[in-house]
Amino acid sequence: MTTLKDIAKEAGVTVMTVSNVINGKYDKVSKSTVETVTEIARRLDYVPSAAARSLVAKSSRLVGVLLPATEGGEIFLSTHNVAVIGVIERLLRENGYYLFLRGVSATEGVSGTLRSWNLDGAIFIGFLDSEIQQMRASFDTPLVVLESYAAHGDFMNVRLDDRKGGYLATRHLIQNGHQRIAFVGTEISERGVDRERYEGYLQALREAGIGGEPVALLSYADTYSNGVEAGVTLCTEHPEVTAVFATADQFAVGIIDGVRSLGRTVPDDLSVVGFDNLEIAATSRPPLTTIAQDLNRKAATAVDLLLQSLQNKEEQPGETILDVELVERESVRNLKRA
């Protein structure tokens, strides 16, 4: 591998001179020397050390994207996260930054990760607010969080109007004549995405005068397999339920297949509404009615806020709330027409 010393030897100059040319400090070197060193570096296929340039510039051009590590160590259980990370990586690359992806637990902390890799900034996806506050206390790197409901003055947050999403989904089912509507989501022990969607679900039920104890099935993760299990449970243990709002399309598609595994169908035996409007919503059978969010805009907003903070050092908005809307397809049966 070609080094600065190799270039200096062939050019007949000092290593410091070569370093100045490579790092763009042309005011300290003559024009002819710049041309000579540049030509030799090109011919010898010299590649600057990213680590060395990071030390000189005091910037690694690395942005950390951190997600919760599950008990099994997996971080890609959510297709939503995969889609968001794909957009984040592309936008960072287009702006000359590199993505550093890591799964962490709140208990292990993140300050060591940020320091050891000299990350310029970070984006958190999928953490509980209590975990975010705990981790944030250990570092001061510019931070954007996706989907936080914490009181925040020391990081930027991009989230959806989740309560509205839960409300729209449930109201749509009610407008189609459903009275016994189940909720399927993840654990909702503290305020966050699924709790807000659950509150929207309850609001729609209250407005319609629908009483009784809500049927809520909660899992540790919004995976397809958990959705299949929920579909089977609804059909076998809650025959009174005619419709379900699931907080993720993965859940919803799993529910559809769980219902199908019992010889029943969606929407004839159970109507289903999901959340996210991922590609699987349009390709499922039947196509899934869902609450749509603009994943591209959410990811782009997060990257834009972080890069503005890194490049301009100006104070950015503390919170950005993005709208949602209902997309009707074929997974909801209108009982009023039955």
Rank of each mutant, 00 (worst) to 15 (best):
M1N: 09
L4G: 07
K5S: 00
D6C: 07
A8P: 10
A8I: 02
G12Y: 13
V13Y: 02
V13A: 09
T14L: 00
S19I: 08
K25N: 09
D27K: 12
K28S: 09
E35D: 05
V37Q: 01
V37S: 07
V37F: 12
T38W: 06
R43K: 15
R43F: 11
L44T: 06
Y46L: 12
Y46R: 03
S54G: 15
L55H: 12
L55S: 10
K58I: 03
R61D: 01
L67K: 02
P68E: 08
T70S: 09
T70C: 12
N81W: 14
N81V: 11
V82E: 11
A83L: 07
E94G: 09
E94T: 14
G96S: 15
L101W: 11
R102S: 01
R102F: 07
S105L: 00
A106V: 13
A106I: 06
G109I: 00
G109M: 14
S111F: 13
N118H: 15
N118W: 01
A122T: 00
I123V: 10
D129H: 10
Q134S: 05
Q134V: 07
R136G: 07
S138D: 08
L146S: 00
E147P: 03
E147N: 14
D154A: 04
N157R: 04
K164N: 05
G165M: 15
L168T: 02
A169S: 05
A169C: 08
A169M: 04
T170A: 03
L173E: 12
Q175V: 01
A182N: 07
F183A: 04
T186M: 04
E196V: 05
Y198I: 13
E199Y: 05
L202N: 05
Q203V: 06
L205I: 11
L205T: 07
E207R: 15
I210L: 15
G211S: 13
E213K: 12
A216Y: 04
S219T: 08
S219L: 00
A221I: 01
D222C: 13
T223K: 14
T223M: 11
V228I: 13
A230H: 04
G231I: 01
G231V: 07
T242Q: 09
A243V: 03
A248G: 02
Q250P: 00
A252K: 05
V266A: 03
D269S: 08
D269R: 04
L270V: 14
S271T: 11
V272P: 01
V273C: 11
F275V: 06
E279L: 09
R285Y: 12
T289V: 00
A292Q: 12
A292N: 04
K298W: 01
A300Y: 06
A302K: 00
L306P: 02
Q308K: 13
S309N: 12
L310K: 09
K313D: 09
E315T: 14
P317G: 07
E319D: 13
T320W: 04
T320G: 05
L322G: 03
V324E: 00
S331F: 02
R333S: 08
